[in-house]
Design a binder for these strands. Structure first.
Length: 242
DNA sequence: GCGAATGAAAC
DNA sequence: GTTTCATTCGC
C-alpha cells in the first residue's frame, strides 16, 4: 500500500482506501460484544454503527449474537426516539407492552404499544427508507461520543436520577482512564463510520455555522474563561450553512 | 438552547 | 488558537 496518502477527502478517496465491509463488521462486533452479559437478550446498537454496516455486516453481527442467545434474532429500530437499533429475539421485543410495527418494504420498528403512536411510527418508519425531503446529514460521532452513547444506559441504571451532565462527567473520567487499546478500538470504529458516511454521502462536508444562525449563544474563551457576548450584528448575517 | 464530557474539522 | 457540533435529555 502507499504510505503517503496523508490527506484523504471524499473526493480523493479511492475504493482501495475504504475500510472493507468485513473490517467494519468485525470492529463493530468487538465493541458490541463488550456489552454482552449472561443476562443480555437484547443488544442496543448505536444508529451510526448500524448504518455503517452493509447487509453482510448485519448478518455477521446477527449470527454472532444468535450464537450467544441460541435463538433466532431480528433487527428492530428503536421507536422511542433514540437513534439506535435493537437486536434480539422477537419475543424479547414484545415483553412489557412493547410491539413491533412492520410496514412492507421498511425495517421493523419497536415501540411501546399504543394505537396513536403506532400510526405515527408507521409514518415515521416509512420516512426512514423513503425520506420526503433530504435531511441534514449529521456529523459522524467521534470515539468518545461512541463510547458515551454505548455506556450511558449502564451509568444511568447504576445511578438512578443521574443527570446527563453528570453522566458526561463520569464517562469522561472513565474514558481518560481507559487503556490505549480500548480507546483505539473506538477510534477505529469512528473512522470506519466516517468513511461509511463519505460513501453514503459523497457530497457531505462539515459546515459549522458561524455565530449561531438560530439563537445567540454566549461563548467562553479557553484562555481567560471570559464570557463573551455576541455582537448584535452577527444575528443579521445571512448564512448558507445548508 | 444550554450544559457536561472529548475530539474532528473548519475558521 | 478558537468555535461548532456530534451524543443525551432535564431544565
Amino acid at each position: 500500500m502507499n504510505h503517503q496518502a496523508a490527506v484523504v477527502t471524499p473526493g480523493t478517496l479511492g475504493p482501495q482506501d475504504q475500510p472493507s465491509k468485513e473490517a467494519i463488521a468485525s470492529s463493530a462486533w468487538v465493541l458490541l460484544e463488550s456489552q454482552i452479559t449472561p443476562f443480555t437478550d437484547v443488544m442496543a446498537i448505536p444508529g451510526a454503527i448500524y448504518r455503517a454496516l452493509d447487509a453482510g455486516g448485519k448478518k455477521f453481527i446477527a449470527r454472532n449474537f444468535m450464537t450467544h442467545l441460541g435463538k433466532n434474532v431480528l433487527y428492530c429500530r428503536d421507536g422511542t426516539g433514540y437513534d439506535r437499533y435493537f437486536l434480539g429475539n422477537a419475543r424479547s421485543f414484545l415483553r412489557g407492552g412493547g410491539t413491533i410495527v412492520s410496514v412492507q418494504g421498511t425495517e421493523p420498528f419497536w415501540m411501546i404499544r399504543s394505537t396513536t403512536t403506532i400510526l405515527q411510527a408507521a409514518a415515521a418508519n416509512l420516512g426512514v427508507t423513503v425520506p420526503p425531503k433530504e435531511k441534514k446529514v449529521p456529523r459522524p460521532p467521534n470515539a468518545y461520543i461512541l463510547y458515551r452513547t454505548e455506556r450511558q444506559n449502564v451509568v444511568r441504571d447504576a445511578h438512578p436520577g443521574i443527570t446527563n451532565n453528570e453522566i458526561s462527567q463520569v464517562l469522561g473520567a472513565a474514558w481518560n482512564a481507559e487503556s490505549r487499546e480500548v480507546r483505539q478500538q473506538y477510534k477505529e470504529m469512528s473512522e470506519k463510520i466516517k468513511q461509511a458516511l463519505y460513501e453514503q454521502h459523497p457530497d457531505y462536508q462539515y459546515r459549522p455555522r458561524k455565530a449561531s444562525q438560530k439563537k445567540r449563544r454566549a461563548r467562553r474563551t479557553a484562555s481567560t474563561n471570559e464570557v463573551i457576548e455576541h455582537d448584535s450584528d452577527e444575528l443579521a448575517k445571512p448564512s448558507f450553512a445548508d
